[in-house]
Amino acid sequence: MRSLLCVALLAAAGQAGATGIAVRPYGVTAAGTNVERVTLTNDRGMQLSYIDYGATIVAATAADRSGARRNVVLDLPDLAAYQRSTRKWGAIIGRYAGRIGGARYTLDGKTVQLQPNLRGLTIHGGPPGYEHRVWQRRDFADSASIGSVYTLVSPDGDQSFPGKLALRVTYRLLRASDEFRIEYEAVTDAPTVVNFTNHAYFNLAGAGSRGLATHRFQIDADRYAVTDANRVPTGELASVAQTPLDFRRPASAAARLQGPSALLGDPPGFDHSLVLTKAPGKLARVAVIDDTASGIRMTVGTTEPSAQFYTANAFDGKEVGSSGTAYERYDGFAFETQHLPDSPNQPAFPSTALRPGDVFRSVTSFRFTRQ
């Protein structure tokens, strides 16, 4: 998978910590496929690392208040741990991120039956998930950025979805600022539905830090998707006003998890689809997350219409990060930019249909600064 460009950059850099692209072996899958780890280092010293398995982000270093860099992406210690896990750490999710109610949808008059789970719905595309596949990779460098282009071909009938889908995901680290971007592009040879996201978990105090008590969230969303008992959208998009989901002004998610709330469940937790207040298809700022302890700020921009905000409610201490710390409930958060769940069954939601001749494109950016 290593490109000639990458080999040249490695020779010029001389070591993983130098500016450029560094590649090293990461392991071999149970099926015998080699997996590599890529580490990008920009001119400011920020690093972004990912592996070919699941096109999974495994680290992103941000400068704290003192200038020291911390990895803010929760990770696992080795390839075997990623193969065992069901939590989709930092991986690309598809063909359809989120839930599809009844494990079926109708498009152009044709009903498509998907693979139901035990609750009778499909989540994150169903098995076999994109997070458990080894993606093909090409590394690149240009005047403004360095990165890799990952490609995956999902054949007709894969996960029971119609159409051969060609998906390209670009990880791009900007040279002159602490910002990385995830760029998606997909085409199909038959009508289908698509919804992609990256499932990274963050903790801006540093991966392995406990809880979210020092985090403040500001999210540009004025509505959320109301869901049923299986957390499948009903079709109603309700106002966040006077609910725990109102982060239009900076607020502590941890504080809102302390008290009882019918909306947050029992035990309480955020796992909600927020409708972003932005122009359709335009790359715009949608969230600012601050950690008052480290001084790290993460600003998220996206072209997507919504985001799934999740506070790691199901973490139970059974999985351990590379830091040696077991991940407990609320030890991280995910902010998954995407289209709304169950959109194929909800005519009022933005469409997720992709047809031959059309190109799906999406961009999400993560920029890190100091408060």
Rank of each mutant, 00 (worst) to 15 (best):
D156C: 08
D158A: 11
A12W: 00
F247P: 05
R216D: 09
T227Q: 03
I219A: 05
Y105G: 08
L257F: 02
G163Y: 07
A284K: 03
F309M: 05
I21D: 06
A238L: 13
S351Q: 01
G120F: 02
R370A: 12
A22H: 15
A326M: 09
Y96Q: 08
R168W: 04
Y26F: 15
A176W: 04
Y171I: 08
L121K: 01
W89I: 15
P347F: 11
G208T: 10
A254E: 14
I93A: 03
S209N: 09
A8K: 13
A59T: 05
I92K: 07
D156I: 02
G67K: 03
Y105K: 10
D358S: 14
A13T: 05
R231N: 15
I92L: 13
S323F: 03
L283G: 09
I219N: 01
H124M: 07
A279C: 02
A11E: 15
T292G: 09
V72G: 03
V226F: 01
G102V: 04
Y327V: 06
G211E: 12
S343Q: 00
T234F: 08
S143I: 11
Y184V: 04
T325V: 15
G45F: 10
F335Y: 09
Y171Q: 06
F335C: 07
V300K: 06
L76Q: 09
Y82V: 07
T364M: 07
S148E: 07
L263K: 03
T243V: 12
A97D: 11
F140H: 08
A251E: 06
R172C: 12
R256T: 04
A307D: 07
A68H: 15
E183T: 11
R256Q: 09
R172P: 00
G67C: 09
Q242H: 12
R137L: 08
Y130T: 11
Q218A: 10
G27S: 03
L245M: 07
G208H: 02
L9P: 00
L107M: 06
D358Q: 15
G147D: 11
L167V: 15
A229N: 06
L118F: 04
V363D: 04
P267N: 07
N71K: 04
T311I: 07
I93G: 07
L173T: 01
I57W: 10
Y130N: 05
S261Y: 13
K318Y: 05
I146Q: 12
Q113A: 13
A314P: 00
A91C: 14
G281Y: 13
T303V: 08
G126H: 01
T170R: 14
A81L: 04
S323C: 13
A262L: 07
T197W: 01
L204Y: 10
L340S: 02
V288T: 15
A229E: 12
G269H: 08
G126E: 09
G90E: 09
V359L: 04
A190D: 11
A348R: 12
G163L: 08
P341L: 04
P25W: 02
P268S: 13
